[in-house]
Amino acid sequence: MYKNMLSTAMKITPLRQIIFGLFVLFFSSQTIASPSVITGHITTAILASSCSSCHGPNGVSSGPSIPSIAGIPKEYFLEIMLAFKLNQLPSSVMGDIAKAFSRDELTQLADHFSKKRFVPSQQPFDPVLAKKGAKLHEEFCEGCHEKGGSSAKDKEISILAGQHLLYLRWTLDDFKRNKRQATRKMAKKMRKLLKLEGNAGLDALAHYYASQQP
């Protein structure tokens, strides 16, 4: 969803991205084949461990607001981290911390967390709002955020179902206020939803995603 913005900002063409990806893949496979444990390079394990202080061990956050990053598609991870790096997203400290990591390191992290299991948060929610949210989701969001927002089949979106309620609600607000750039399709759907339901519609959606628990 940040693809256009980033491509322009960083002058990265899809082809160059692919070449870069292969380059990274080559070197990470070299890493695995290397006989040393930690020698000579920072392993992904140490890099990833720096995320767990805020996002929880293995990227599973206890909440109530910092999102879980386990299981999110690597394309989405990379795009959003690069957007943080460029100060294009609201954050408390993520925008600055993101600057510590090179693109290569972010790619390693993206790969690492995409392989972790996403664990839906066991959290309180409003069942009435969640029910209303389910209908709104079906009408406005399911087209891209498939299976009730639990699928991240389109690699540039994240898992919504089971994410922390506050994070969901605030992020919806950021989209509404154009603090986060939506795709044209999403922006259009969002305007329609807001016209129809206002902020209550965003509340309902957030509660619906939060309600999806095992």
Binding site: S53, C54, P90, D96
Partner: peptide
């Protein structure tokens, strides 16, 4: 990198409050 030195457009004290609690819950784990 330092968030104190960065150009901040807006602060969110309420968000920071819940992030602080999240951070506490996660870092202690």
């Amino acid at each position: 990198a330092d968030s104190l030195k960065a150009k901040k457009t807006k602060r969110y004290p309420l968000r920071e409050f819940y992030n602080a609690h999240s951070w506490y819950n996660n870092i202690t784990r």
